[in-house]
């Protein structure tokens, strides 16, 4: 049995004038500890699917099972969600921000607190606990957001283009950090991106989505050699440009 099962998801957005189908017939399985990417042009419903997995709203039809149980975002914290921007609360210190998830379930005392503050050091933000988000750079803020997400010890991490608002150098460094951190905690992760290189460098498997309505167009398995490497090194591996070209051609073919 797979860790995360997505079964026959359909989703349609209704408004007064229109009924726009964003997702049609999506079924896929993700194993424990895997890192998969949803890749595709804008409007292919990849963020919609991620939001549905996160439980932000229910799909029009279909089921999502995590460890064979239906997901319910309002009652547990098994899902961690990272957005395009950090969305750290500007009126809270970094420490308060990181402890937010635990505070909501009233576990921000004692051991959990110490563990979380250690997490801050692990993402390279030691000593910034008393600072406010505005005092940190974009990359540091996104790292703080990662620590906030990991603090509640989610079973699965959903990453919605978390590197897209960063400059290139910071992005490459953060890719490595996120990759390393997730592997060391053995976390399962789903990354939504429109960046082919990022998808190849980070994931074990890539789902390419086609638009109108959003469907899984093709699945690419990333070779074992690339999987083992850190994202930065994967980008320099000879197999990287080959896979890049393959996916690039598929993406091009979608446009016509």
């Amino acid at each position: 049995m797979s860790f995360l099962r997505i079964q026959n998801i359909h989703h349609t957005y209704f408004s007064n004038q229109t009924a726009a189908t964003a997702l049609a017939d999506i079924s896929l399985d993700i194993e424990k500890g895997e890192f998969v990417s949803f890749l595709g042009p804008s409007g292919c419903g990849k963020t919609t699917l991620l939001s549905i997995i996160a439980g932000l709203f229910p799909p029009t039809s279909g089921k999502i099972l995590l460890e064979n149980k239906p997901l319910n975002a309002d009652s547990d914290t098994s899902i961690g969600y990272m957005l395009q921007q950090d969305y750290l609360f500007p009126w809270k210190t970094i420490e308060e921000n990181i402890l937010l998830g635990l505070k909501l379930i009233k576990k921000d005392e004692g051991l959990e607190r110490i563990k979380t503050l250690k997490l801050l050091t692990e993402v390279g933000l030691g000593g910034t606990g008393k600072m406010y988000p505005r005092e940190l750079s974009g990359g540091m803020r996104q790292r703080a957001a990662l620590a906030r997400t990991l603090a509640v010890d989610p079973k699965i991490l959903l990453l919605d283009e978390p590197f897209s608002a960063l400059d290139y150098q910071t992005k490459l460094k953060l890719e490595d950090l996120v990759f390393e951190t997730l592997k060391s905690f053995g976390k399962t992760a789903v990354l939504v991106t429109h960046d082919i290189g990022e998808a190849i460098a980070m994931s074990d498997r890539i789902y390419l989505f086609s638009p109108n309505p959003g469907r899984v167009h093709k699945t690419f398995e990333v070779s074992d050699e690339l999987r083992e490497l850190m994202p930065f090194d994967a980008r320099n591996h000879p197999q990287y440009p080959i896979l890049f070209q393959t996916i690039w051609k598929e993406l091009e073919s979608l446009e016509y």
């Binding site: 975002a73 961690g80 937010l100 509640v152």
Partner: peptide
């Protein structure tokens, strides 16, 4: 910004918590 609420929602926040943690201070 609804994204602050999204962050809280993924942590399983109740409506009271959303109000206290995001809506009011913002």
């Amino acid at each position: 910004d609804p994204n602050y609420l999204k962050v809280l929602q993924t942590f399983g926040a109740t409506r009271t918590q959303k109000f206290r943690e995001a809506i009011l201070p913002a």
